[in-house]
Nucleic acid binder design. Structure first.
Lengths: 339, 339
DNA sequence: CCCGACTCTTGCATCGTTGCAAACGATCAC
DNA sequence: GTGATCGTTTGCAACGATGCAAGAGTCGGG
């Protein structure tokens, strides 16, 4: 910038004014500086700007596994939404490591990013504690890790209930819930399953929740395989906690010659792009990723604004779940044999 | 840092020495400073450090679509490899926008990142020109956009040839190549297809290259649908340029009642995780993503090192393609009716 | 007992940019 | 003609860290 100033015969400060679009710069000066700028191929140093102004224009997004389609699509949505605001996204992959998530929560990314979006998969509430972080933070997906933290996501209980109710509507009675684990998300989706089953007055003996380690295709495959190998009565419906599990389940059912949806109906949550191309196409709950991304960024900006501390607890509207919809495809077109 | 110095009763410089692990600091001082550090919850400012030292510890990775599984998995591999070197990855999504890619090439990320990894999908060679960028840059995937730029990726011609040769081995004769477009990658994979067909002495009349816009599931579906609706003879093999296209193709074949692999064998390139769960499981060429990530980072580091300018053109070894292997699954188990 | 060598600590300048407030020149109203 | 006002430009300091080189203190050898 110093070079540019010299080349244009003005002060460094004036160059800064031109670059940052300050109003009171005479057209002639502006043009002259602009020419020097172009001629010398000047590029602004983000670091210095960030150091001086305290804002970097970065938002960090931490997800457990970027290679999992759901998170990849979420990241894409966030990047897109951020780009429209002139914000660049820094994507971190925590690998589901509790330690990494904790480090992020305790401010490991401050100074690098103006705000942090954390999609914590494994983080137990205990780790979060009740400390409110000293930097803008929004939790994605989890809806009760800590009530004091702003968060964005669908209502997991309602989503699960909707999916299971749909299976019930199709005539399924013996519905397996696939995917319980000790995550908050897992608990909530289990609860949604329970509610739907209770509402439908399905007899308790037909309730079955199958636990898995991770919500991956491999786990879904293994769990269903085991179920089929067992000696219990076969289910007529599978509600997978996410699409990856459902994809694994579909493969296992297919491998064992169980027909979907004729013998077993399948539905799940996430509606990743892959879901429209499975065999058969998968019925799934589609969260509005764009809405999630937009709202998350809104919340970050609100936290960053100076009057943030004035309004104490987050507004009720801020924690209202984002919308979702049920996308019905062939996997759930179950019609039980009459009689 | 000033606060810490005051709290510990030493100078700012000494605190800096402790933080950066300078050798000549007395144990007592070190411990005292360390205690103050912990007590005040000191966190180093990346920006200031970066501004002073000229290195940020960031590497930027630009891919066309993060939501495409192949790129998500590639990003995951890069993030993982970078993490082991203490490097943080900044993931950009260019949305396949030529303008965005060009901006990155002309240095839009300098100062933010120590180096840039660019996976350019659409960028024509003309845009690259022959100008060598003034910052560390490594191209991913593309293998002849500009010979002067270091690049990492598999040999696309060989990969395509291997996949097609495999289909030929299975007895396929009328093999459709699905995915030509005007990208460099597309040209190379088309060339590999041609070579394999020629080597197998397949009659020209059985060669067929179907063009598509993007390498997505939807395009793969549409292309195959159109093919089946046409009045030409049906193929007995499909070589898709990537797994996404293959997934779409499988779905279209299934929807039309064409059996895979009995009627048509399918193979493609990428071996994304999804490939093991399609119907039937998809035979695919698996590039070694970890090797790609490692080598790309190596090349960046070499460019960043001070003696980089000494050794003129990149070493031959640096441009040697990374390894890949053929993963055979059921989709290619074609056995033609005898006679 | 003094001096050099070594260890530990420190002050100053600096990276590239922007906030602040003053300086400058011109225009305007009285 | 003079003071107030406005638009335009500028110098200085600062953001938080590190490179450099010098200062303070300690030890051992001559």
């Amino acid at each position: 910038m110093r070079d540019v100033a010299e080349h244009a015969g003005v002060s460094v400060r004036t160059v800064s004014n031109v670059v940052s679009g300050y109003a009171h710069v005479s057209p002639s000066t502006r043009e002259r500086v602009q020419r020097s700028l172009d001629e010398l191929g000047y590029r602004m140093d983000f670091l210095a700007k960030g150091l001086r102004s305290g804002r970097t224009g970065f938002v960090a997004l931490a997800v457990p596994f970027l290679a999992e389609p759901y998170f990849a699509e979420l990241a894409q949505a966030v990047i897109h939404a951020a780009a429209r605001r002139g914000i660049t996204v820094l994507v971190e992959s925590t690998a589901g490591d509790r330690e990494v998530e904790r480090r992020i929560l305790s401010g490991g990314l401050t100074n690098v990013a103006d705000g942090v979006l954390l999609s914590a998969l494994t983080l137990p509430a205990a780790d979060v504690g009740s400390a409110v972080p000293d930097f803008p933070l929004v939790m994605l997906g989890e809806h009760s890790v800590g009530d004091h933290l702003p968060r964005v996501g669908i209502d997991n209980v309602a989503a699960a209930r909707t999916a299971v109710a749909h299976l019930v509507d199709q005539g399924c009675r013996r519905i397996v819930a696939l995917g319980r684990n000790d995550s908050e998300n897992g608990r909530q989706r289990t609860e949604g399953y329970r509610q739907a089953m209770a509402e439908a007055k399905v007899r308790r003996v037909n309730w079955l929740v199958v636990p898995v380690e991770d919500w991956t295709r491999a786990e879904g495959y293994a769990a269903v395989q085991e179920l089929l190998d067992g000696d219990g009565p076969l289910p007529d419906g599978v509600f997978a906690f996410n699409d990856a599990l459902a994809v694994g389940a579909l493969r296992a059912l297919d491998a064992s010659g169980v027909r979907v949806p004729d013998d077993v109906a399948v539905a799940s949550i996430d509606d990743i792009q892959e879901a429209a191309y499975t065999h058969p196409p998968l019925t799934s709950i589609a969260p509005d990723l764009d809405a999630i991304a937009e709202r998350a960024l809104d919340l970050l900006e609100r936290q960053a604004s100076p009057d943030a501390e004035a309004d104490g607890p987050p507004e009720p509207a801020a924690v209202e779940p984002t919308p979702f919809r049920l996308v019905v495809r062939r996997s759930s077109q179950f019609r039980p044999a009459e009689g």
